[in-house]
């Protein structure tokens, strides 16, 4: 674990794995909740956690240098179930890459337990981990100009759901009616970092 200064008020803490990033994020949230850490933003990502709006980044960096991370705590939130029709235009392609039938690919995806590793790209867009590493798939070389809202896609080790229509290069395996983002709802985002998620197959 190393902490890189980002300007004068932020730190980028870098770790080796997804799991460590999730453990670090959980620990930093815990410290902020108990009042021992003041940070305006705590932004987890693939191998890092960014802390912004810090009063004394150097002191926090010194503490982090000697810190030992506790393991990822069990999720503190209820599992969010996302109903999915496995009807995406790339389902057959993904199944071929996995060496299984499209039906089996859908079954494998729905059998995995996911967790939101981090959010980004658009409000409410979560990067979900949980598929075994051998099921990672590359993005499309040329992104689609418009991916419909509710599309469930795969890219690298991640599963994601498009909160709204946007360009996108993920391989689309299904569709959901779940509303990922609604700014009139509290909370606005269905998924936030650390949320446990399951995809529940529904009829075609």
């Amino acid at each position: 674990m190393r902490a890189l200064p980002v300007g004068d008020r932020a730190l980028l803490v870098e770790v080796a794995t997804d799991e460590e990033a999730q453990a670090l994020h959980a620990e930093l949230l815990r410290r902020r909740a108990e009042g021992s850490l003041r940070a305006r933003e705590i932004v987890p990502a693939a191998r890092t956690v960014l802390l912004d709006g810090l009063d004394e980044p150097a002191r926090l960096a010194a503490w982090l240098a000697g810190a030992r991370l506790p393991p990822v705590p069990p999720p503190s939130k209820d599992v969010v179930e996302i109903p999915v029709r496995y009807d995406g235009p790339d389902l057959a392609d993904v199944a071929r890459r996995w060496g299984v039938s499209p039906g089996e690919a859908a079954r494998l995806h729905a059998a995995a337990g996911f967790r939101v590793a981090f959010c980004g790209f658009a409000p409410g867009f979560g990067y979900l981990t949980g598929l075994p590493g051998r099921y990672a798939v590359p993005r499309h070389a040329t992104p689609r100009t418009a991916v419909p809202a509710g599309s469930v896609g795969l890219a690298g080790p991640y599963t994601g759901v498009y909160p709204r229509s946007s360009p996108g290069g993920w391989r689309l395996i299904g569709t959901t009616d779940a509303v990922l983002w609604d700014h009139t709802r509290v909370p606005a985002a269905l998924l936030s970092p650390g949320t446990p998620v399951r995809f529940v197959p529904v009829g075609p």
């Binding site: 980002v6 300007g7 932020a10 980028l12 933003e41 932004v43 987890p44 990502a45 693939a46 191998r47 890092t48 956690v49 960014l50 912004d52 981090f118 980004g120 990067y127």
Partner: peptide
């Protein structure tokens, strides 16, 4: 670079 958090002024 794996995606990472960005700050204002980066």
């Amino acid at each position: 670079l794996p995606s990472e958090g960005m700050v204002l002024g980066a």
